[in-house]
Design a protein around this nucleic acid. Structure first.
Lengths: 280, 280
DNA sequence: ATAATGTTGTAAATTTACTACAAGCCAGGT
DNA sequence: ACCTGGCTTGTAGTAAATTTACAACATTAT
């Protein structure tokens, strides 16, 4: 249902007439220019006439040329999505824009990058787990804790471990019915790899959430969900990566929760009610 | 540099004439409609005339009405209807899509909702603070901890407190040079309000990060940054809210970091180097 | 070869964006 | 209170845009 106009043009290229195709190649060649061009300019540049351009638009299922322009404006990697780094010259508004846009973009990209098969397997594992443990250090410890906060409401016995000693001890005591979720941006933290190895040795299933497809941690994972956050700005990379990790865990949480919707709803309501006395 | 047009309108709302403001509220009220409207339609709907609409566009620094339409089209969510709730019938791909889209949307909206003046003041406070403390409970405790993780790298003495007793004790010891950041989705946690009140009594500045503009907590804040996440799906609300809070703190962090770029860069490098031995 | 069909461009119609100017409004001063 | 000067706002007109109707041309089939 994602109507990317440029993809649409490319797909319907075959069903176009000769001169309409000229228009199409012209649009595909420089879509950005179309946004700022009038129909006359486009007709001229493509060596055709205005009505041809209109017919071209109609063939795409659009109402007219205006609609094409607006759609292209919407779909283009507009100046809004900047992977630039922040510079000292930036105004506060500029900084806010860059940070927010980098985040938003990173999150959207996650959806494309996610492997649905692996995701499905991860959901199955978590759903049928006797116990779930979330491991992470530093920034990823926060993600682990957040995951714990969510998953424990599902009634699944779980814990977040951000202490390397606790992790190995806990990992040693796991059983094949248990699952650990190992979270790491680099995917190369020695301590975390140790913990994952020990957990695997105990027979527990290991789900890795990493920000890099070549991470050594992946070798010790049954399933690795890579939150590859493309070459975002250096300064922002750790933040976007963390946000993406959180989003992946949110997806896992919701998916697992939906496996047993009524029980979940009841449980979430009870959690909610338990907090009312804390309100002002 | 190219800021979001909607945010631009919101910010320049003060410098507009009476009837231009009518146009502005009309655009802000339903930006999507503007994209498909002609200048005449917008003039009519806002109860003004075409020239007023043009003048409004010029005030924003745009060339004319067409540019406004194109910019709005570009900034708007790509026509996916998102704010739906998850249902039990959803496929995994559907769930992932909805969660990710809700998140992405919430983050983008943050930019529009943020009040730049308040943001600027918050940056100033944090930059010149002798000490910064982050307070939060439950899910917001995680956000607090995340903020602590970031800000301590700037060399600012700081801490995250997620224990109500520690909070009040710590708050009682603060000085007018100190700043606390009180984080709460509902903005009505009794304990957090207590902590904020005590901190204020000690003379410390209070920055509130809340998900609701009518939160009681705001009364005790010098600056309240509202991460109002619009009526997102019920099940997803806590998650998106948390993501938005994180994003706001990211913006604050980057902005404060940029106040002293060279020092920051050096410090971040040192932190990075300190971790290399932990790598595989 | 010629009729039939399909494709493209010309020219006119209609809508849209924009400009020049005049009417209205709200000060401040007499 | 009433005028006056400046500042807003709307009316009416203009130029330019998009879209339509139709005619000319090309292509294919009979």
């Amino acid at each position: 249902m994602t109507t990317d106009t440029i993809a649409l043009i490319r797909n319907s290229l075959d069903s176009l007439r000769k001169s309409e195709k000229k228009v199409a190649t012209c649009v595909l060649g420089d879509p950005k220019a179309v946004v700022t061009s009038s129909i006359t300019e486009l007709a001229e540049k493509s060596g055709t006439s205005e009505p041809t351009v209109i017919r071209f638009c109609r063939k795409l299922g659009l109402g007219g040329y205006m609609e094409l322009r607006l759609n292209l404006a919407r779909d283009l990697p507009s100046s809004k999505y900047i992977f630039e780094n922040i510079s000292t010259e930036d105004s506060l508004a500029g900084i806010a824009g860059k940070v927010i846009n980098a985040h938003s973009e990173a999150i959207s990209n996650t959806l494309n990058k996610l492997n649905l098969d692996d995701l499905e397997k991860a959901v199955q594992l978590l759903h049928s787990a006797r116990r779930v443990e979330f491991y992470g250090f530093g920034g990823s410890a926060i993600v682990a804790k957040d995951a714990y906060h969510k998953f424990f409401r599902l009634g699944i016995p779980c814990a977040a471990q951000d202490d390397s000693h606790m992790q190995v001890m806990s990992a040693a005591l796991l059983t094949p019915e248990d699952v650990i979720v190992a979270i790491s941006h680099t995917g190369s933290s020695k301590d975390l790899i140790d913990s994952a190895r020990i957990a695997a040795k105990s027979g527990a299933k290991v789900i890795g959430i990493v920000g890099n497809e070549n991470a050594p941690l992946i070798k010790y994972c049954d399933i690795a969900l890579s939150a590859h956050s493309q070459e975002a700005a250096i300064l922002l990379a750790p933040m976007t990566s963390r946000l993406v990790q959180l989003a992946i865990l949110d997806v896992l949480f919701v998916a697992v929760a939906m496996k047993n919707f009524h029980g979940t709803k009841d449980r979430l309501d009870r959690v909610k009610r338990s907090l009312v006395d804390k309100r002002h």
